[in-house]
Amino acid sequence: METLETIKNLTMTQWSFYAVSVLTLFGALGTILSKNPIHSVIYLIMTFFSLSAHYVLLNAQFLAAVNIVVYAGAIMVLFLFVVMFLNIKDEAPELDNNKIVIGASIVGGTIGVILVAAIRLTESQKIDPSTYQIKTGFIETLGQLLYSKYLLPFELVSVLFLIAMSGAVMLGRKEKGERNF
């Protein structure tokens, strides 16, 4: 009876939180359980999407949009792109192997239990809704922080990206005498 009462008293935000969480978990489970790699990738895209919805619920709209643009929009397209070139029917991985499944579930379950225990043990600060700055997750606040307090790490990350980019160019460069398709 008590659970029924709690369900009745849920606010709109809580309802959307639970709906989005169910979607996220469904997507995450689909990613690891589906046999077809393409289906896995599509489930993963769904997971990223519902994670973005979580960000919106936390009023971090910029993070949500960037998550969609970068992860769901760019990285997963490349994933899908590569997976589509593989010939799946010939190289169906032997996932029926029970040993792998049992081992993976034991490891995953243990890590899950440890995570839950750790989160319960940490004393996280409760946020007071009355004094909470509603603009915390907004892009203006984020920009101010990135260009003042975290300026050096931010600039270093851009150098890292530059190095990664030139590395990719190096790897993709044609060797001398290599066939030009």
């Binding site: 709209q61 910029f62 949009a65 960037v66 969609i68 643009v69 769901a72 929009g73 760019a74 397209v77 907004f138 892009i139 203006e140």
Partner: peptide
């Protein structure tokens, strides 16, 4: 929303 153009951009990339 204060991220309007990013939303457009995100949906376009999808």
């Amino acid at each position: 929303v204060n991220i309007g153009i990013l939303w457009v951009f995100g949906v376009v990339s999808l």
